[in-house]
């Protein structure tokens, strides 16, 4: 099975600074990590590979040159190949432009059976790139997947809903966006780490992929960020301390009464 994992390098904090002009995040202001749910996507790919050992995992990312570090970690965890699409022209791309780039990158590869992406990136929280990518590639998709079963060329995906889940069966090729519940990502292995030097991370620029220049980058992005800000927290929760549950409940009721709730 040929699996493609889409991964994004994101700043590791909610307190990152924001560029006042471009209204985008200043990446250097916080350490960079792999987006959490993308780790789950990679983990699922690695598990499928354990089940079907002749699988081949390609991790693809659009991002600045330093996103190579993240891709090297993917190799150290067991991915077979990693590609970084990086070009100054791509800076400021919104989800629509990003999915154009990823779709172009994926079309350049020699086919695939399954694409796994995280549900959303912690810096943007849009949850749009996965679904857009599936649309642009013309393949079926299931979002918010929390459980995956693979049988030959059929995939069974459990999808989280507000009040339960839904089980869907689909044929490959297809795309799944996954949630944190799906699995527990593994660590890099020492051998994997020392294997990185034998596994060159491919870096593609805009000329390497067949993409229309008017469909990528900040200017081409239909999303215009009006303002970015760090939300102020709306007061703190209180922890009720008491010896027994009974006393705690009594205190709670008292407090609720005070507030006329």
């Amino acid at each position: 099975m040929k699996i493609i994992v889409c991964a994004k390098q994101v700043p590791d904090t909610t307190e990152v600074k924001i560029d006042k002009v471009k209204n985008t995040l200043i990446r250097d202001s916080a350490p960079s990590i792999m987006n959490y749910e993308d780790e789950n996507a990679l983990e699922e790919a690695l598990r499928i590979k354990e089940q079907f050992p002749d699988s081949y995992i390609t991790v693809i990312s659009m991002g600045p040159p330093q996103a190579k570090d993240m891709l090297e970690e993917c190799i150290a965890q067991g991915a077979d190949e990693a590609i970084l699409i990086s070009d100054r022209e791509l800076v400021g791309s919104d989800t629509w432009a990003t999915s154009n780039v990823l779709a172009a990158g994926i079309r350049k590869l020699s086919g695939f059976d399954l694409i796994l992406t995280g549900r959303q990136a912690i810096d943007g929280d849009t949850a749009q790139v996965g679904p857009q990518l599936a649309e642009k590639l013309g393949i079926p998709q299931v979002t918010y997947v929390k459980e995956v079963t693979v049988n030959d060329n059929e995939i069974i995906a459990k999808r989280t809903l507000e009040n339960g889940y839904e089980t869907l069966k689909l044929k490959t090729p297809c795309l799944l966006t996954v949630t944190r519940e799906l699995n527990q990502p593994r660590y890099m292995t020492i051998k994997g780490i020392y294997n990185v030097k034998n596994q060159e991370i491919k870096v593609w620029n805009i000329k390497d992929i067949n993409v229309d220049l008017t469909e990528v980058g900040l200017d081409a992005s239909p999303t215009k960020v009006v303002e970015s800000f760090v939300p102020t927290s709306k007061g703190k929760g209180t922890v009720i301390e008491a010896d027994s549950a009974k006393e705690k409940v009594a205190i709670l009721l008292e407090k609720l009464k005070e507030k006329h709730i």
């Binding site: 090297e72 890099m188 780490i193 990185v196």
Partner: peptide, 14 residues
């Protein structure tokens, strides 16, 4: 080196 940094990071997480 890259490997030394990655080993440290991995063990730290572990």
């Amino acid at each position: 080196t890259k490997e030394q940094l990655m080993v440290r990071k991995m063990i730290k997480q572990f």
